[in-house]
């Protein structure tokens, strides 16, 4: 009995040792890869930071209004953010690559999916970035136009423009990630439709008179004002 137990034990030990013998180099390899990987990630981060500084990326995004948006969300500055994203993406990617070396089949599938996903993340981030730029630009333009044309509620108009574009951008970004697109699309359609319908009903039925009075007064008055306003700047 004891002999059998001992036999089993030695067998197990043997297989354990042999397993360790097969896996230990892989683990070591993985460790080396991971260490080097994080070193690379660190280098990438430093290099990117320098490059972005040279190209005055911060000033550019400040100019485009991205920084202000980020500041509101309490995140770091745009170039710092980009550096961190790059750092983690590179770091994680190489870690994943290291795990791949272990040759565990279950992991391998996930890993390959992960790598298909990385470029999409980047494209999505880019879309978001450009989208925010455009949204801010058009929102400002709308605000100024409204103020200078003496339209009512300029900030509401501007906000609506910004919201619309940001929503479209988010949808585009998500679409890029292929995440639950149908769900989002439906949700958005319903939401947007509801708001519009609500507004239409509010103005068309409830506020018909008010709206008419408002518009009449507004237009007539403006015409009158126009006649009187003949300062010639030149």
């Amino acid at each position: 009995m004891i002999e059998l137990v001992m036999q089993r034990l030695t067998q197990t030990l043997k297989s354990l040792v042999s397993a360790a013998a097969t896996y230990l180099p892989r683990v070591l390899a993985m460790l080396i890869i991971v260490i080097i990987g994080w070193a690379i990630a660190f280098a990438v981060k430093a290099a990117l930071r320098r490059i972005l500084k040279i190209f005055k990326f911060d000033a550019f995004s400040e100019h485009g209004g991205v920084s202000q948006t980020l500041r509101k969300t309490g995140l770091a500055g745009p170039s710092e953010l980009l550096c961190r994203v790059a750092f983690w993406v590179v770091g994680i990617s190489i870690t994943v690559l290291g795990i791949d070396v272990l040759g565990i089949p279950a992991f391998q599938d996930i890993i390959s999916r992960f790598f298909r996903f990385v470029p999409q993340i980047f494209v999505a981030l880019l879309i978001l970035f450009v989208g925010i730029l455009v949204a801010n630009f058009l929102a400002t333009a709308a605000l100024l136009a409204a103020v200078n044309a003496d339209l009512p509620s300029p900030r509401f108009l501007s906000g609506a423009v910004r919201l619309l574009i940001v929503i479209i951008t988010i949808i585009m970004a998500l679409e890029q990630l292929d995440l639950a697109r149908i769900t989002i699309l439906i949700a958005f359609t319903i939401g947007f439709g509801a708001v519009m319908l609500g507004l239409a009903i509010a103005f068309g039925l409830g506020g018909q008179d008010a709206a008419r009075r408002f518009l009449e007064k507004y237009i007539v008055e403006r015409e009158k004002e126009k006649e009187k306003e003949d300062i010639s700047p030149l």
């Binding site: 103020v147 200078n148 300029p154 009187k228 306003e229 300062i231």
Partner: peptide, 23 residues
């Protein structure tokens, strides 16, 4: 002298300063 419509200008100035605060 040229006539100037001050009332509307004052109003547009005030709206402008409030609404364009961020800019």
């Amino acid at each position: 002298p040229l006539r100037v419509n001050r009332k509307q200008m004052i109003q547009m100035f005030r709206t402008g300063v409030v609404e364009l605060k961020d800019i």
